[in-house]
């Protein structure tokens, strides 16, 4: 069964690079450019993804707000969430964990590391 990932990241290049990497590793990927569109999709969809990747800094609704909404909703609360945070904002890591992030990666990151972490976060089938 193909695993699906939702990525919310406003940087088009990073979004495209991660999508390519994850697709090359057999994942289905859906992308959003802002937090609001991401949470709207998660609330409306019948097929929840296996994991969500959230950038912290995004327009309309930031990654923390999306994470909070995910953890507040019964249907979404168990979703694994990987946060992408900027190197210069170490506090974001703490805040991310406090709000219920499953794991985090700081930018600059290695796309291979992101894929490896995502694989580790998903239960093996």
């Amino acid at each position: 069964m193909t695993r699906s990932i939702v990525i919310a990241e406003d940087d088009e290049d990073i979004q495209q690079l991660l999508t390519f990497k994850l697709q090359a590793n057999g994942f289905d990927v859906t992308t959003f450019e802002d937090g609001r569109a991401c949470i709207d999709h998660l609330q409306e969809t019948d097929e929840l993804p296996d994991l969500v990747v959230l950038d912290v800094m995004m327009p309309r609704m930031d990654g923390f707000q999306v994470l909070e909404r995910i953890r507040d909703e019964d249907t979404l609360a168990d979703l694994p969430v990987l946060m992408l945070t900027a190197r210069s904002r170490e506090d974001d890591v703490v805040e991310g964990f406090e709000r219920g992030a499953t794991d985090y990666v700081t930018k600059p990151f290695s796309p291979n590391e992101v894929v490896a972490r995502i694989k580790r976060m998903l239960p093996s089938t």
Partner: peptide, 15 residues
């Protein structure tokens, strides 16, 4: 442009 935007954001072998 793409190279310049990606460089600060990734590291490792891809960088």
């Amino acid at each position: 442009e793409t190279g310049k935007r990606l460089l600060p954001q990734i590291h490792g072998g891809e960088r």
